[in-house]
């Protein structure tokens, strides 16, 4: 099938579309995070092929046996062993279509492909645990005061060289 230039579109602008939907439904205005300062920068200390990687994902992923997330500003997190059997993983969320995540969790929690990168020699190793969050938390204050200090402490304790973040 040939692709015509007319059928291609630029990236979706989610902020105006979601803002219009919320307003159309009569919800209060959502304040999007707008960072004004250039982000801090830490250079890589070694090649990725020799690095230990920490993984943090939103999307409401938990392993069977863990408490599931709830849908109202859930600032908790789950530690999922990175040697977990993928069939033990679940996803629950209020804001995205879970069909494909429940078919194959790797679309939002890329564990299988990270294991492949280790096998290929493109990645050194994985931290013993990945951390999963709900996301969609309205309160920036609660993220800053409760969730961020806990996660920063965990990745420092894990002695990872790099962190990959996968939001939904």
């Amino acid at each position: 099938m040939t692709t015509t230039p007319q059928s291609l579109q630029p990236p979706v602008d989610y902020i105006p579309r979601i803002t219009a939907q919320y307003s159309g439904l009569g919800y209060g205005e959502y304040r999007w995070l707008e960072s004004e300062e250039v982000p801090a920068w830490t250079p890589l200390s070694k090649p990725i092929s020799e690095s230990k990687l920490g993984l943090i994902c939103t999307g409401g992923i938990y392993a069977s046996g863990q408490t599931a997330f709830h849908f109202k500003d859930d600032t908790s997190y789950r530690a999922i062993p990175t040697d977990v059997d993928l069939t033990e993983l679940r996803a629950t969320h209020f804001a995205y279509d879970l069909t494909d995540a429940r078919k194959d969790i790797n679309v939002v929690f890329p564990l299988e492909q990270l294991r492949s990168m280790i096998d290929e020699g493109a990645l050194g190793s994985l931290a013993p645990h990945a951390y999963t969050l709900m996301g969609g938390i309205y309160s920036t204050r609660r993220v800053t005061e409760e969730l961020i200090p806990a996660l920063v402490q965990r990745v420092i304790e894990d002695e990872v060289d790099v962190v990959l973040l996968v939001p939904v």
Binding site: I15, L33, W41, G54, V152, V155, V162, V163, L165
Partner: peptide, 29 residues
């Protein structure tokens, strides 16, 4: 997620964020 990435980077660990919402990620920076 942008806030978390920025905080980890500030704590001295390099981060990379995947994204399928370009404008939201740009805004969080």
């Amino acid at each position: 997620m942008g806030l978390i990435a920025r905080a980890i980077e500030e704590a001295g660990i390099p981060t990379l964020s995947m994204s399928s919402a370009r404008d939201i990620t740009r805004s969080a920076w």
